[in-house]
Design a binder for these strands. Structure first.
Lengths: 112, 112
DNA sequence: AGCCTATACGTAGGGACGCTACTTATAGGT
DNA sequence: ACCTATAAGTAGCGTCCCTACGTATAGGCT
């Protein structure tokens, strides 16, 4: 997975990863890795700033808790986040259809 | 189409737009617009630098010509560009499958 | 003649974003 | 004592697409 490909689609996947219930950052990484058969293995330097960004945007809400001595920050989707997720899903479908039309569609005939 | 979504996928679409034969920049814009039903309407400030980038990378080759008094730069795929296009197509399929698995797949069950 | 639009190419600068590399800290196994 | 897994975070970097602008010709309209 090339890095540039991901740009603009990470937020949608993070929101989707939180759709099934609150998760902390490390668990999000593992959920995405497991959910994609290992194809998506994001570094912490990608995840943690992205979660902060989503939190600042009001799409997710975080809270600290301590489990077996380790501090964890659990994030849950806010109502705005659920709406954003629905929008991002629609965006993705539209985007995927557009790119597929160009890449998978036959070569554009020369209009000349 | 949000801007960030496109990142990393433009090159593949430009290569695909040139697969049917040489085209100049302005014609590439129109071909992509027509091929996607107007969903992809890229500004010239996106296309021209991108074509330069692909040319510098050796994936396309450009040559000037003059048609009805207007100068045009026609680009054609190089053999390396054809190989790159095949690779990018495979990348796209893999990427699309990965994102779809996360967004369209059911919510990841809580392992707890 | 004067003006506007379409055609056609280009650059400069900026904003957004994900990654690399590094730091801090606890739990548990060898 | 050491190493790995778990868990969170930051600083700085590089890439990339877009906005805004500049240049020029062809052709239609008034």
């Amino acid at each position: 997975m090339r890095a540039e490909e991901l740009k603009g689609h990470l937020d949608a996947m993070l929101l989707a990863a939180l759709e099934g219930g609150p998760r902390h950052g490390y668990a999000v990484i593992e959920a995405l890795r497991a959910g994609t058969g290992g194809r998506l293995d994001l570094p912490t330097g990608t995840i943690y700033p992205a979660l902060r960004r989503l939190e600042n945007a009001g799409l997710i809400a975080g809270s600290w808790s301590v489990v077996t001595g380790r501090r964890r920050r659990y994030y849950r989707l806010t109502p705005a986040g659920q709406r954003a997720l629905a929008g991002r899903r629609a965006d993705w479908r539209d985007f995927a259809a557009t790119v597929s039309a160009v890449l998978e569609g036959g070569p554009c005939p020369d209009p000349a």
